[in-house]
Computed example of a mutant assay.
Amino acid sequence: MDADVHTLKIKRPSTPSVAKLQALVAADMNAVNQTIIERMQSPVVLIPELAGHLIASGGKRLRPMLTLGSARLLGYGGTRQFSLAACVEFIHTATLLHDDVVDGSDLRRGQQTANIIWGNKATVLVGDFLFARAFELMVEDGSLRVLRILSRAAATIAQGEVDQLTTTGNLDTTEDRYLEVIIGKTAVLFAAACQVASVIAERDDATEAALESYGRNLGIAFQLVDDAIDYASTADVMGKSAGDDFREGKLTLPAILAYARGNDDERAFWRRTLVRMDRQPGDFEQAVAIMSRRQAVTDTLKRAHLYGERAIDALAVFPDSAAKAALIEAADFTVQRAY
């Protein structure tokens, strides 16, 4: 890739959406969806039934779209991106199934979670099935580099989820420690989804690094926004229960900032609710009020904006194109989304 950095000339809309990226890769997503449907099949009827419940529940499929959009950005004209995008979606879906069991969640994208409908055992095992399908797709691609990137991402995600358990209820968790956790459990799959496009397009290390940086920073921004709106949105808007992180004792950045900035009474409140898990009626509303007073949600969203800009900056090495504009707008949408 040419070492020159291109001057950004793309106009960024004031109300961004992922519609531009969706339109750009619509035909490609049909091929990805076909692969997903084929690989979900099993003579064990419960497997496609349960997996299909989550996959068909209205998610935007942002991660596989990033694989397809990155391939378009590089002008790749082959077909390997279809199976790899399906692989990325399977990894993501498997982690969602496992997460809902671990967290005891009852809503996902506005619908009952699989663990509520089919139970924890079936949900975990179908998640395992989807992980296995993902690895089949990696191997079939035939690239050891692709296999290394995606398998390492899958392992890091699992490690990140376990790592998050160690911070639950731990008010000594720092912002740096929190970032380590969200990079592991969220950002690495965003990064891998983009990075593999450079491998199949046979581009140089600088191109691969740029796409990895775009995806990683986008993933960090995405999780920061998720954690912020857990204290600043509603179940109707979010498609999941508001305040889930608070109820589960998760030390996300809003809580970390609120505790660090709080007075003695506020810190005592966080110790009672997040460490001892001693909850009383109105505690979540009080948590939201403290967050507002200490600018915890506002500053979390400011950090998300910073990482969103870093993601966009990583694309500066690529010439302007429809794909670049779509990826930039996807980053802006990630920071500004309402859910």
Results as ranks from 00 to 15, higher is better:
Val5Lys: 02
Lys9Asn: 09
Ile10Gly: 05
Ser14Cys: 07
Gln22Trp: 03
Leu24Arg: 06
Asn33Arg: 15
Glu38Cys: 09
Arg39Val: 03
Gln41Val: 13
Ser42Trp: 11
Pro43Asn: 13
Ile47Leu: 10
Glu49Val: 12
Leu50Asp: 10
His53Pro: 07
His53Arg: 07
Leu54Tyr: 12
Leu54Ile: 10
Ala56Val: 11
Gly59Glu: 08
Gly59Arg: 01
Lys60Arg: 02
Lys60Cys: 03
Leu66Asn: 02
Leu66Thr: 02
Leu66Gln: 00
Ser70Ala: 07
Gly75Trp: 01
Tyr76Asp: 00
Arg80Phe: 03
Phe82Asp: 01
Ala85Met: 03
Val88Leu: 02
Ile91Val: 03
Thr93Trp: 00
Leu96Val: 05
Leu96Ala: 04
Asp99Ile: 02
Asp100Met: 00
Val101Thr: 01
Val102Ile: 14
Gly104Trp: 03
Gly104Glu: 03
Ser105Val: 12
Arg109His: 09
Ile117Glu: 01
Trp118Ser: 02
Asn120Cys: 10
Asn120Ala: 14
Lys121Glu: 15
Ala122Asp: 05
Leu125Met: 09
Asp128Tyr: 06
Phe129Ser: 08
Leu130Ser: 04
Leu130Ala: 09
Phe131Ile: 15
Leu137Ile: 10
Leu137His: 00
Leu137Tyr: 02
Met138Cys: 14
Arg145Glu: 15
Ala153Gln: 12
Ala153Tyr: 06
Gln159Glu: 15
Gln159His: 06
Gly169Lys: 15
Gly169Gln: 11
Asn170Tyr: 15
Asp172Gln: 14
Thr173Leu: 08
Thr173Ala: 08
Glu175His: 06
Asp176Gly: 08
Glu180Met: 06
Val181Asn: 06
Ile182Pro: 14
Lys185Leu: 04
Thr186Glu: 12
Ala191Cys: 10
Ala191Glu: 15
Ala192Pro: 12
Cys194Phe: 13
Val196Pro: 10
Ile200Lys: 14
Asp204Ser: 10
Asp205Leu: 15
Thr207Ser: 15
Glu208Cys: 06
Glu212Thr: 06
Tyr214Asp: 06
Tyr214Phe: 14
Arg216Tyr: 09
Gly219Tyr: 12
Ala221Leu: 13
Ala221Gln: 05
Leu224Cys: 03
Asp226Val: 01
Asp227Ser: 04
Tyr231Cys: 11
Ala235Lys: 11
Ala235Asp: 14
Met238Ile: 08
Gly239Trp: 04
Lys240Ala: 02
Asp245Arg: 02
Asp245Glu: 07
Phe246Trp: 14
Leu257Ile: 15
Asp265Pro: 03
Ala268Cys: 01
Trp270Ala: 04
Arg271Leu: 08
Arg271Phe: 14
Thr273Lys: 05
Leu274Gln: 10
Met277Phe: 10
Met277Leu: 10
Asp278Val: 13
Asp278Gly: 08
Gln280Val: 11
Pro281Thr: 09
Phe284Met: 11
Glu285Met: 07
Gln286Phe: 09
Ala287Tyr: 13
Ile290Asp: 04
Val297Gly: 05
Thr298Phe: 08
Leu301Thr: 05
Lys302Ile: 09
His305Arg: 05
Gly308Ala: 13
Glu309Trp: 15
Glu309Gln: 09
Ile312Cys: 09
Leu315His: 00
Val317His: 00
Ala322Val: 13
Glu329Ser: 08
Ala330Tyr: 06
Asp332Cys: 04
Thr334Gln: 04
Arg337Lys: 00
Arg337Met: 13
Tyr339Asp: 07
